[in-house]
Computed example of a mutant assay.
Amino acid sequence: MIKEVIVVEGRDDTVAIKRAVDADTIETGGSAINAMTIRKIALAQKRRGVIILTDPDHAGERIRKIIASKVPGCKQAFIPEAEATHKGDIGVENASPEAIRHALARVHTTVEGAVPLLDWEDLINAGLITHPRAASRRMAVGNILGIGYCNGKQLHKRLTMFQISREEFAEALQQIESEGL
C-alpha cells in the first residue's frame, strides 16, 4: 500500500489508480476545487502525505497549481500525455497500470525556496527555448525527467522546485539528442 494519499480529479481516475496500486485517493471533482476538498487534502498531507496526480492537460495543471499553492509540501507525479490519451481523450483514467506505477515510482517533492541549479541560459543552450523544435524537446525532456510537459518558464520553475541536478538534466538532453530531437 502506498502511504501517501493520491489526489486525482475524478472517480474514473480513482478506478485507474486502484487497478495499478493499493492506495487511497481524494477526488477534486474537477477544476472547481472547493474549500472542503482543500481541507481534506491538507489533513491528508499532515497525517500521511499527498501525491498530486492530475491529468496531463491544462485543467490538470490548473488543479495541480491550486493544490500546491494551498497545501505546501505535496509530492507530485506526472504521466506523459501520450501514455494518458485514448481516442483523443486525455486523462489519468486512460493510463495503463504500468504507466501509473511508473509515474508513482518517479514522484518529485517540491523544495520550497530552492535555489536554481540551472539557469535560463542552460535552457536556451539546450534548445528548450527559442529553438524551432523547443516544444517537442521540452515535452521529451519533461517526460524523461518525470516532471511533465510545460512551457519554457514553467520548465525552469519545475527544474528548480524539484531540484533537478545538472547531471540529470544533461542525461535527459543526451537521451533526446540520441533520439534525433
Rank of each mutant, 00 (worst) to 15 (best):
I51W: 09
I51H: 10
I52W: 00
I52S: 01
I52Q: 01
I52T: 04
L53T: 09
T54A: 09
T54P: 02
T54L: 07
P56I: 09
H58C: 08
A59P: 03
E61Q: 06
E61S: 09
E61V: 02
I63G: 01
I66A: 09
I67S: 03
V71T: 10
C74R: 03
A77L: 00
I79A: 01
P80S: 10
P80Y: 07
A82V: 14
K87E: 15
K87A: 14
G88E: 04
G88Y: 06
D89V: 15
V92G: 08
V92H: 06
E93S: 04
E93D: 13
N94L: 04
S96P: 06
P97S: 03
E98K: 13
A99Q: 06
I100D: 01
H102C: 09
H102M: 11
L104D: 00
L104K: 03
A105H: 03
V107I: 15
T109E: 15
V111M: 09
V111S: 08
E112Q: 14
A114I: 09
A114H: 08
A114D: 08
V115I: 11
L117N: 09
L117G: 14
L118C: 13
L118Q: 07
L123V: 00
L123A: 00
A126H: 03
L128V: 02
T130N: 12
H131E: 04
